[in-house]
């Protein structure tokens, strides 16, 4: 899916939380958004998913202004994974995956495609088959995050938005999560836009990265272009050491204690 963001601006009161953000995401791309706390990342994601309206500027999905789309139409195109995964509801895993079909169901709850085989397929891919009848509230955090991905897959979106999806996961589940998303992206050709806290994950998984600071667009480019020590220092206020990953040759950062320029 083509995502086109034009001169986006969002005010909370008189304060601009986003100002002059402008970029285009190509179909099938994995696009990362990074920036310090309060830089406007989450607000940007909310606007991309149609939760918040822009004060000026536009978000176009395949040429259609998102402000003109209904909630259900948006949900047929976009799935969103939030950082808090799923609340511990007592629905079965199967029921929750099936909830992803909601935007494709009509008033009476009848699906436009046959969803039984779709759900079987997804639960096979994500190794959820043995959990299908368990209540979500009895699952671990990592398993719950997998159910959330399964629900998003059942939604069959063209665009997947992720809001710091790895925040509450240990490194094993972080990699598992990002790998599952990448496999999905490659297999189905979907477009992925993800907000990430972890710059190393962003460098490894994203084709291009957008850096935001105080609502402004600071840099946009491939990981090798934007992960540089002076840029990171100017945005985050700490000077890291940048190394090349021995396998992928992508830039990775190491943190340096005491390297905080205190002015």
């Amino acid at each position: 899916m083509n995502v086109n963001v034009q001169d986006l601006r969002k005010l909370y009161g008189n304060q601009a939380v986003l100002d002059g953000v402008q970029f285009a995401v190509r179909p099938g791309e994995c696009f990362g958004i990074i920036g310090p706390n309060g830089s406007g990342k989450s607000t940007l994601l909310k606007m991309l998913s149609g939760v918040e309206r822009a004060d000026s500027g536009h978000v176009h999905l395949n040429g259609v202004d998102i402000a003109k789309m209904k909630t259900k139409q948006i949900a047929r195109k976009i799935a969103v994974l939030l950082q808090e995964a799923l609340s511990p509801v007592d629905y079965s895993v199967r029921d929750v995956i099936e909830m992803g079909r909601y935007p494709h169901q009509n008033w009476w709850g009848i699906d436009d495609t046959e969803c039984t085989s779709l759900i079987a397929d997804i639960s096979y891919k994500l190794c959820l088959e043995h959990l299908l009848h368990r209540a979500v509230s009895t699952l671990s955090g990592g398993e719950r995050q997998r159910v959330a991905i399964a629900k998003a897959m059942a939604q069959q979106p063209d665009l997947l938005l992720l809001d710091e999806p790895t925040t509450f996961l240990d490194i094993g589940y972080q990699m598992q999560m990002m790998d599952m998303v990448r496999n999905w992206q490659v297999e189905q050709g979907i477009t992925v836009i993800t907000v990430l806290h972890d710059l190393n994950l962003a460098a490894q998984y994203c084709d291009r990265i957008l850096i935001l600071n105080q609502g402004k667009q600071i840099a946009l480019g491939t990981p090798a272009e934007v992960i540089s020590d002076h840029l990171i220092e100017s945005v985050y206020g700490t000077r890291p050491i940048i190394l090349e990953h021995p396998v992928s040759a992508l830039p990775q950062i190491l943190l340096q204690p005491g390297a905080l320029p205190l002015q």
Binding site: Q73, V80, M99, Y102
Partner: peptide, 24 residues
């Protein structure tokens, strides 16, 4: 009765329900 599915989605949280296409 017709809103049963929407109420199910609500129990995941309002934001989740909205991202699944419910006009909350």
């Amino acid at each position: 009765l017709l809103m049963g599915r929407e109420l199910n989605l609500f129990s995941l949280g309002e934001r989740q329900a909205m991202h699944l296409g419910v006009n909350i």
